[in-house]
Write a protein that binds this DNA or RNA. Structure first.
Length: 701
DNA sequence: CAGTGAGCGAGCTTCCGCTTGACTT
């Protein structure tokens, strides 16, 4: 590029990325961001002409016109344009749409495509020196994906509006997620807990005591079904010698884990801190965009939406230097390499700290509590991923007594290896110690500990487990994991109970309708099959129209058939109540509206009386008001619960009423949660100390 | 730990995937 050049415009997706790249390239380059897609199908209608080869009608996305105009203007001032959107299917489509938009205002400007999958000076330079053309086949694969999703979503949803309720939705991804959650709900319902018992014996050698568990009786794996089973065995062991019959020691290598992908970070943050996927992504975004750590704003982590565990050469060198300085013993000879998932599109690196020298402890004072927690995860996981393994040793002792065989084991870490850098991620050590024992040794049996248990059914999905499952099945992308959960909650298909995702009545109805009428679509293999066909398009072996046509040929007649024949179940969701309309005397029902549940008169439309759902009676002496949910700050604030007699009665609480009443004082119980007790119910009355701790199963949704 | 109050809703909805702010009805 000569000195007279007007410079090259580079367009990336993320503004934070644009800032970094501009810094790396210096003068002669202007780097701007598109903020994702600028062009898409309009929201308001199907916008696909199925009779004309599925011709899509693309428009500028509402609110993005300003950005597009800005990019067109910047292109006008440039001598060349390099499209540097992400190196994946969606990125290729973004580049394609940008190219068309720019050519409309400046037909003669040279436009090329560049790709890089890490943001380091060397890689950026190389990419800029090796521009290529847009990959049309990849763009077509994206087009097929987009149109397929539109056809599925915009044909299924209206069926739900007509047959069940307005405003509902269905789609290739959300409906599979819903199906998984509903099926789990059924498994839980049909599960019958079975009683079983465990039997431990407390043994003594000298001054040391330890417990061993019964594992075999009469040479067979023992299954204790009742207290009587335990008593029988205990009686049979009366006066018997307890003798060590085997001592085994095994060592295990503890390998460090790969650095985080989006899904793994969401899982860990959910399991460790109880963060929702949404919260994790919000905080990660803050760390990515940058925090002032004393020397101005610095991006603390790499891009947070990724499916790859790959790490740039620069970062590997940097972490090895860090380790050489701080943990020389734990620096392996060669770098550790991790494989990404098989369906990974690999457009970005793993999530890692931008500078390992910024240790969590160093920058703690500049971070919020949540930022610190999440940064610690990212930093610890990345640094440890490039360290040597640890080693643990497990001692297993077997003790014979009559026909019974008891076993006890203890594990200890003999070499911490990578675990040395773990703080937040440190394994919780429940160290059980055994005295030094030898085969043939006689032990003193102090007492028996029989214990009753019940088999527990499958657990409901949480943010962590539903995302793990979806990712394993190749459904959804890093940018959509959190929104998938949000849409199921927004539609009232699913509710969060504690941290679990439970299907509602509405969710089950929708799931039944979809599985009964569109079983192939809500099957998890549908996406896998679609991906194969997209690969065919990308490889130039198939046209996008054929792929869409092939699907639509069977899909559309089924849509029409269901639309015509399925009986409407509108109104069955309205729950009868014992409330009577004070205006017209007709009974009232509980309905689901756009903003949640409400009480309405059955005389609609002649009587339009509505009111919020009463959750409990006001606990104030002499007040006849009901407690209802309210929201502060124009609906933006946190939900709280107040009396309908406000302002005459100013009773208010942030604790959610449970619907049950206190057996001691008759006032209502609220849901509470803390570390020791988990979730429990407590009486709202401060003078009453009633607590209900054991989880009463609440099946109503 | 602090912090607190509309009125709506029952026809015009909905998909998935890419990206940030503006601002929730």
């Amino acid at each position: 590029m000569g000195n007279n050049s007007k410079g090259t415009l580079i367009i990336v997706e993320s503004p934070a990325k644009a800032r970094t790249i501009e810094k790396y390239l210096g003068s002669g380059y202007v780097v701007e961001a598109s903020m994702g897609h600028l062009v898409d199908l309009p929201k308001s209608r199907l916008a696909i002409d199925v009779d004309k080869g599925f011709q899509p009608e693309y428009i500028t996305i509402r609110g993005k016109a300003k950005i597009l105009k800005g990019l067109q203007k910047a292109a006008g001032k440039s001598s060349a344009v390099l499209l540097a959107s992400d190196n994946d299917r969606e990125g290729e489509a973004i580049s394609y749409h940008l190219k068309n938009a720019i050519l409309r205002v400046k037909p003669d400007v040279p436009i090329k495509r560049i790709i890089f999958n890490e943001i380091t000076p060397q890689v950026i330079r190389e990419a800029v020196d090796r521009p290529r053309e847009i990959d049309e086949a990849k763009v077509e694969a994206q087009k097929a994906r987009r149109i397929l999703d539109r056809l599925v979503g915009y044909h299924l949803s209206p069926i739900l509006w007509k047959k069940v309720k307005n405003g509902l939705s269905a789609g290739r991804v959300q409906s599979v997620a819903l199906r998984l959650i509903c099926e789990r709900e059924q498994e839980i319902e049909s599960f019958v807990p079975e009683e079983y018992w465990s039997l431990e014996v407390e043994l003594r050698k000298g001054r040391a005591a330890f417990r061993a568990a019964l594992v075999e009786y009469g040479g067979k794996k023992c299954e204790l079904r009742s207290q009587a089973d335990c008593d029988r065995i205990i009686a049979g062991l009366h006066g018997r010698e307890f003798r060590v019959c085997d001592v085994k020691e095994t060592t295990k290598t503890l390998r460090p884990r790969p650095p985080y992908t989006t899904s793994k970070l969401q899982q860990e943050a959910a399991n460790r801190f109880g963060f929702t996927s949404r919260k994790t992504m919000q905080i990660a975004q803050q760390l990515y965009e940058g925090v002032d750590i004393g020397s101005g704003r610095v991006g603390l982590i790499t891009y947070m939406r990724t499916d790859s565990t790959r790490v740039s050469a620069v970062a590997l060198q940097e972490v090895r230097e860090f380790l050489a300085g701080h943990y020389p013993e734990e620096l392996p000879e060669k770098v550790n390499v991790y494989a990404s998932g098989s369906r990974a599109q690999d457009a970005h690196e793993a999530i890692r700290p931008t500078y390992v020298a910024n240790t969590p402890a160093d920058i703690k004072s500049s971070l919020s509590a949540d930022q610190f927690k999440l940064y610690s995860l990212v930093w610890e996981r990345f640094v440890s991923s490039q360290m040597t393994p640890g080693r643990s040793s497990t001692t297993t002792v077997e003790i014979g007594a009559g026909d019974a065989l008891f076993r006890s084991s203890s594990t200890s870490v003999i070499e911490r290896g990578y675990q040395k850098v773990l703080r937040v991620l440190a394994p919780k050590n429940v160290q059980k110690s055994l005295p030094k024992l030898e085969t043939g040794e006689l032990l003193e049996a102090l007492r028996f500990h029989p214990e009753q248990h019940f088999t527990s059914g499958p657990a409901r999905y949480t943010d962590a487990t539903i995302i793990k499952t979806l990712e394993e099945k190749g459904i959804g992308r890093p940018s959509t994991y959190a929104p998938i959960i949000s849409v199921l909650l927004d539609r009232y298909y699913v509710v969060r109970r504690n941290r679990q995702l439970a299907a509602t009545q509405l969710g089950r109805i929708i799931n039944n309708l979809l599985t009964e009428n569109f079983s192939e679509l809500v099957n998890e293999n549908f996406t896998a099959e679609m991906e194969k066909r997209l690969d065919d398009i990308e490889g130039g072996n198939e046209s996008w129209v054929n792929v869409v046509q092939e699907f639509y040929r069977d899909f559309k007649p089924q849509v029409d058939h269901v639309m015509e024949t399925l009986e409407s179940i509108k109104g069955v969701l309205d729950e009868p109540t014992d409330l009577v309309c004070e205006r017209c005397g007709r009974p009232m029902v509980k309905k689901l509206g756009r903003y949640g549940f409400f009480i309405a008169c059955t005389g609609f439309p002649e009587c339009r009386n509505t009111k919020p759902v009463p959750l409990a009676d006001c606990p104030r002496e002499g007040c006849d008001g009901k407690i209802v949910a309210r929201r502060a700050a124009k609906g933006r604030g946190r939900e709280f619960y107040g009396c309908t007699n406000y302002p005459e009665c100013d009773f208010v609480t942030y604790d959610k009423p449970t619907g049950s009443t206190c057996p001691r004082c008759g006032r209502f119980l609220v849901a509470k949660e803390d570390r020791q007790r988990g979730s429990y119910k407590a009486c709202i009355n401060p003078e009453c100390d009633y607590l209900h701790t054991h989880e009463a199963e609440d099946k109503s949704a």
